[in-house]
Structure formats: structure tokens, C-alpha cells
Computed example of a mutant assay.
Amino acid sequence: MPYLQSIDVRYGEDPSSEPSAGIKTVDGSSADINAGFGGDFVWLIPTYGSAATAASSIRIIIQGDADSAYYDLAKGAGGDYRYLRLERDGGAKISEVKLLRRGDGVDFAAVQALGFQGVSGDINEGRGGDFLYLVWKY
């Protein structure tokens, strides 16, 4: 079984730039991280491989200062910088990842009811609009 190795951030100028291999949403809504906020179109592209170097969780980092070590998930939208970081803590390995976009926040029980065992923080925290999470299966 392949496991999540990395997530690349891809930018585009219009919806037709969406990569076919990008992370999809649970319900078929927009996979553009910046949907509703202006700025660049932003998509996430997963890479899968062996368990030896696989990710076990995904952390969202939101801060006021730019960090050149990461790609901004809110590029061109203004406000805080939003980054993702894969954690490799030796626990269970991520085998599938999707985006979950909702009008209201979700708790872990709601994520489990959708068949997922992990959830990131809200990518859109503090900027209004939809709640947006990465959810995953082990």
C-alpha cells in the first residue's frame, strides 16, 4: 500500500490550471485553497511511496511572517501566511488524504463519520469563509 510522502503546492492563474492529480474534496466542492478569497488559485498535489518515510499527520501553520522554507497556501490573498507541514512521528502512516470544506467547523466525530482517522487544523482560520481541513486515512 502506498503512503503519503509529500504534498506539493501548485499555483495557477485560472481554474483551468487545476492539476488532475491534485487532492480532491470529500464532496466534490472546489479544491482551490484560496476559493472565495482572491489571490492565486492554490492546489495541493500528493506524492505517495513507501512506509519508511511516510507522513503520520499534517499540521497547518498560520503566522504573520513569511517563511521561505514553505509555500504559502494563501498566496496573493493578503493577510496571514498559511503553510502545511507533514509530521513523521513514527505513528500510523497516512494512506489517503482529501480536503474537507464546510460552512461550519467540524469536530473529530464528524470526521470519523466520513471514514477518516485524522484531521488538520482549519486552513482558513481567522480569514472567514468556509472552514477547510485536510482529512486522512491510515
Rank of each mutant, 00 (worst) to 15 (best):
Y133R: 04
A109D: 15
G126F: 11
Y48E: 05
A77C: 12
G129L: 06
D104V: 09
V111E: 07
K137T: 10
Y70I: 02
R88H: 05
Q117R: 11
A66S: 14
T53R: 02
G78V: 15
L44H: 03
A77Q: 09
R85A: 11
G38K: 01
S95E: 15
A35Q: 13
E87D: 13
L84E: 13
I45Q: 03
D107E: 13
D80E: 11
G78I: 15
V111L: 07
S68W: 07
Y138R: 04
G121H: 08
R127T: 13
A74T: 14
G36S: 04
V97P: 00
A35S: 15
D80R: 06
A109C: 13
Y48H: 03
G90P: 02
S95D: 12
T47L: 11
A52M: 08
E96C: 06
G103I: 14
D130G: 05
T53I: 10
Y81D: 02
E125M: 10
R59K: 10
G76D: 04
A113I: 13
Y48Q: 02
A92Y: 11
L100A: 03
L114R: 10
W43E: 00
L114E: 09
A52T: 10
Y133V: 05
A92E: 15
A54V: 06
K93A: 03
V42P: 00
G129P: 09
D130E: 09
A55F: 03
F131E: 11
Y48W: 08
L73K: 11
R85Y: 12
R59C: 04
Y81H: 12
G49N: 01
K93G: 00
D130T: 04
D107I: 02
L114M: 12
R85P: 08
N124V: 13
N124R: 10
R88F: 05
R101F: 14
G121I: 00
A109K: 06
I94L: 11
R85D: 14
A55H: 01
F116V: 02
Y138P: 07
A66F: 14
G105K: 06
Y138I: 08
G128V: 12
A110H: 06
I45A: 01
I60Y: 04
A54P: 03
I58K: 03
G126Q: 11
A35W: 12
K75A: 15
L73W: 07
G128K: 09
K98V: 04
A52K: 08
W136L: 01
S50E: 13
K93F: 00
V135D: 00
Y83M: 01
G78T: 15
S56P: 06
R88V: 01
Y138T: 06
D89M: 07
Y81G: 03
G49F: 00
E125C: 06
N34E: 02
F41H: 05
T53V: 11
P46W: 02
R82D: 00
V111N: 09
R101T: 11
Y48F: 07
